[in-house]
Design a protein around this nucleic acid. Structure first.
Lengths: 172, 172
DNA sequence: ATATCTCATGTGATCTTATAACATTAGCAG
DNA sequence: CTGCTAATGTTATAAGATCACATGAGATAT
């Protein structure tokens, strides 16, 4: 690819979606919403679980389980893989976090509580991940599934490419 | 972005993988086609690469890299991971094989030479994988990408659920 | 208040998946 | 044949995920 991308040595966490926003508010708001939702549904947002969610909201990009584990250790939690994986399992199961299959990594949900099928746009240059909605039952896949008699339970929809910011940098 | 796709699924067998077919012919035919396509494009379908493709065609389901590696060893090839991964890289890069991200496994392409975006239906009961076409630019994801200015280069579209055969078994 | 049940966490070991690094070999061009 | 390039072989290790079992914290019912 083009050489001017080398200047991107600094892989800073880009935005949710691909735009700027008030990050502190976004983190604390999301955490508060999670607290509330767990209370409503009788779920236990325990310290580890809450911390993992906070980390993912804070970093605002997809993190591998072992990166999370390192951060957990720094925060004084257990440092063996199951600690991270169990918290992630809980968060994924309850819709607070999604797994990005293409990256074997996890990202805080951008639309929690809406019971949606997520779709991701993954920038191969800066690793930013933006979440969009997908409508699996409507497209070609849904049609193929209906035609074949396949019952869809869950979908993985991920696009890899270049985010607007990196496109700009590359063409300027 | 939705209704025009129904015709697409009707014109062909819905998905290779959920129905019977003449398997020997399908394997040898696909191998011959691969030979030809490589010759045309100046690619080297070396013995390991050809063997990996043959194994995937033969098994007709998604295989993990280490399963393939075992089969390669049985066939007298090198038995270290890079042997399998390099052959798989070649086959994936040139469209003979797809990676199923959800399974971290590989499957022979059902529509080689058509330069398509694959979509998969993965049965969580019997592990069968069927390939369909996807039309990433048409659905919600394509719309979101255009709106955001994201340039899609590659898409991962995978549905997890229950295949027709396993649905039948479950309800009978 | 305490016994007890359940769910969550801590920990060590292990398994699966994937890549880095470097030596060797095969196929091709001059 | 020589020297280049692409492919393979091989060792080692990184990265991702799970199993099994011990310990602890919260709720509930006496």
């Amino acid at each position: 690819m083009t050489s001017d991308l080398a200047s991107l040595s600094d892989k800073e966490a880009p935005a949710l979606g691909f735009h700027e926003h008030d990050h502190d508010t976004c983190v604390s708001g999301a955490l508060a919403a999670a607290d509330e939702r767990c209370a409503e549904k009788g779920l236990r947002l325990t310290p580890v679980r809450r911390k993992v969610l906070e980390l993912l909201l804070q970093e605002h990009r997809a993190l591998g389980a072992y990166t999370i584990l390192d951060l957990l250790r720094d925060a004084g939690f257990g440092s063996q893989p199951p600690v991270a994986y169990r918290a992630l399992d809980f968060l994924v199961e309850n819709g607070f976090v999604h797994k990005v299959e293409r990256l074997n990594a996890f990202v805080a949900c951008a639309h929690p509580g809406e019971n949606h099928s997520p779709a991701f746009m993954i920038c191969r240059v800066c690793d930013a991940v933006a979440e969009a909605y997908s409508t699996p039952s409507k497209g070609a896949l849904g049609a193929a599934a209906r035609a074949a008699g396949f019952q869809i339970e869950r979908t993985v929809v991920e696009a890899e490419g270049v985010c607007p910011a990196c496109v700009d940098k590359a063409t300027s």
